[in-house]
Write a protein that binds this DNA or RNA. Structure first.
Length: 598
RNA sequence: GCGGGCGUAGCUCAGCGGUAGAGUACUAGUCUUCCAAACUAGUUGUCACGGGUUCGAAUCCCGUCGCCCGCUCCA
């Protein structure tokens, strides 16, 4: 409404996605289901390419990250330990007057006099509202203001000149049932559980409740010990996973951006606590203000690793066609951060629906969050499962014995304090917390600690939408007759483009061109996703491939067959983004393409 | 979930009480030597779904579902 132009762009993108088979509404023939989307032929290829690029960048091309593929349904205790059972089910209530929504547990208790009304009447119009309504009147305010608020309420119910009925008053203390801003009554608190539930086993009882995972990360923490022991990795190292996650969102919105079923690509990168780094290396590396800190170093603490992963992730996005100027960054403030998190940097993409800030600049919406989560997650699972999540670090133990006694006690006491802070915040009784923190500090001296974690967590479907929005380009051209035509070119990076190459005979009614084109197509299809097309004029076929985002089109013409002898056995390659053409021998075609698709 | 807008062919839309149309796309054919050419023929709809009012509903009313915008939330 306020940004009609951008909505139009978004609508065009949604329309193209359906028309060309990138994204369909789930269950469309039954009217659809809110918050669920399917990928059509082109979308499925695009998504697969993106996930494969991520997987190979994160695991296969690195020495220090291994993969995991865990189940969607896990022991419900995992979600208790992670905090999701508690924080994902907020009781919410709405102001009956303004419709504003509140978290029931965040309303400040108030005291005063409550004015109850049984209903209201509009004698002139002959209408009556039987709905009861109450207003809280803080001390010192005139009763008239309560009646005024009530009158406003009944006006929203369709009465014009309001005559209030059945007024009575009541003194209340510390109530949270009224809107702190205007005193209007709130609806009863209703639970908003964002986790999708099911039952494991045939009996649908409370004992059998299980959750569809709301994030993939927890499986990595839960399997940390197994992966650590079997992969021969030593801290620092990471575990990567791609998989579905589910959230019963209140409002799915913005096409696929906020869906109820979505896919994540998450890395949990485990690092040594800073105290261990200091013991081993003497000090923790200082981190440059901006830019990539370079290859990982042994003296990196959490800040260096955090910056490293932010920059690595930006490189990834640049590598699949999202230039830095299409991205945005949000550094969470200390108020925004979860209590256990030390830092979180969000990588944003400037979507067509992204809002402008006060200065008119588009900030963007989140593609990925890179969080420094301390040792919170593994500690939680250690406490809830009773299984140790600590690792033994030979290097640390050796280094510790060589430290001066005052250095030992300084590091030991810092580690003790941060463990104590965590334990107390997690609700462990003070006495027990002090005992456990002391044990943890003694463990550090013997080379034991719970690893800290840096978590780059990306949403696949959001990234697909970003790539589609980024690729969407309109090209207008006017022909001799003065008719202006707008064509869509999807400028995907060749690495992620669904179809890599289109193969056409210049003309369909010349069997020798068709035969040769089929032959070229057969030669390419095993190595690249290739698409053969001979329907319609050549320009039309180019346009069709432009809309699919195919970066290269190969055309077999009469020169291929030797009309000009020097061009025998060559084809025309036409570039999507500028229509440029070049001549390439068929023999070198696959290699030519290969070089441009990585 | 609440408030507002919307839902007609694959897509963009017209029709707004008398029983459904245009452009485009798609299919086949003719033609065509490089950027959505032309011609011919053809396919497509429970007018989102369900109910009601009416002699008659795509059109008016109610409900449901979905999409878009705001509240909310965040991968």
């Amino acid at each position: 409404m306020s940004e009609p132009k951008e909505n139009v762009l978004m609508e065009k993108i949604v329309s193209l996605c359906k028309r060309r088979g990138f994204v369909f509404q789930s269950s469309e023939i039954y009217g659809g289901i809110n918050g669920f989307w399917d990928y059509g032929p082109l979308g499925a290829e695009l998504k697969r390419n993106v996930k494969e690029t991520w997987w190979s960048t994160m695991t296969r091309l690195r020495d220090d990250v291994v993969g995991l593929e865990a189940t969607i349904i896990m022991a419900p205790q995992i979600w208790k330990a992670s905090g999701h059972v508690d924080t994902f089910s907020d009781p919410m209530c709405d102001c009956l007057l303004t419709r504003k929504r509140f978290r029931a547990d965040q309303i400040d208790p108030q005291s005063g006099v409550v004015y109850h009304f049984a209903g209201a009447r509009d004698a002139a119009a002959g209408k009556e509202s039987p709905d009861a309504f109450s207003v809280l009147l803080p001390p010192g305010k005139p009763p008239e203001s309560a009646r005024k608020t009530a009158a406003q309420f009944y006006q929203t119910r369709g009465l014009q000149s309001v005559e209030l009925l059945g007024e009575r008053t009541e003194k209340v203390e510390n109530t949270t049932r009224y809107n702190p801003e205007n005193g209007a009554q709130l609806t009863d608190p209703r639970p908003f559980n964002l986790m999708l539930q099911t039952y494991v086993g045939p009996i649908q009882s409370e004992d059998n409740v299980a959750y569809l995972r709301p994030e993939t990360a927890q499986a990595i923490f839960a399997q940390f010990k197994n992966v650590h022991e079997t992969s021969r990795q030593k801290v620092p190292f990471g575990i990567a996973q791609i998989g579905k996650a589910f959230r019963n969102e209140v409002t799915p919105r913005n096409f696929t951006f906020r869906s109820r079923e979505f896919e994540q690509m998450e890395l949990e990168f485990f690092i040594k606590p800073d105290e261990a780094i200091e013991a081993i290396c003497g000090s923790v590396a200082t981190v440059p203000e901006s830019g990539h800190p370079g290859e990982p170093q042994p003296n990196w603490g959490w800040q260096a690793w955090h910056r490293y992963w932010v920059e690595e992730r930006v490189r990834f996005y640049e590598g699949i066609g999202l230039s830095r100027d299409t991205l945005g960054f949000h550094h969470q403030t200390s108020e925004e951060l979860a209590h256990y998190a030390r830092a979180c940097t969000d990588i944003l993409f400037k979507f067509p629906f992204s809002k402008k800030d006060e200065t008119g600049a588009v900030k963007g919406d989140e593609l990925e969050g890179i969080a420094a989560r301390s040792d919170f997650d593994l500690s939680q699972h250690e406490r809830h499962s009773g299984k140790s999540m600590g690792v033994f670090d030979e290097e640390l133990r050796t280094a510790w014995t060589k430290l001066a006694p005052e250095r030992q006690s300084e590091l030991s006491s810092r580690y003790h304090d941060s463990r104590l802070k965590y334990l107390v915040k997690s609700g462990v009784p003070q006495e027990k917390a002090e005992r456990e923190a002391k044990e943890d500090a003694e463990g550090l001296a013997k080379g034991q600690y719970i690893p800290h974690v840096i978590e780059p967590s990306a949403g696949v479907d959001r990234l697909i939408l970003a790539l589609i929005a980024n690729a969407y380009t309109e090209v207008s051209s006017t022909d001799e007759k003065g008719k202006t035509e707008t064509r869509v070119v999807m400028k995907f990076h060749p690495r992620v483009a669904p179809v890599k190459v289109g193969v056409f005979p210049l003309l369909k009614n010349k069997p020798e061109l068709v035969a040769k084109a089929r032959e070229v197509f057969q030669g390419l299809r095993g190595r690249f996703l290739a698409f053969y097309d001979d329907a319609g004029a050549i320009g039309r076929r180019y346009a069709r491939q432009d809309e699919a985002g195919t970066p290269f089109c190969v055309t077999v013409d009469f020169d291929t067959l030797g009309e000009k002898p020097e061009l025998l056995g060559t084809v025309t390659i036409r570039h999507r983004d500028d229509g440029r053409q070049e001549r390439v021998p068929i023999a070198g075609l696959a290699d030519w393409l290969q070089a441009r698709l990585v």
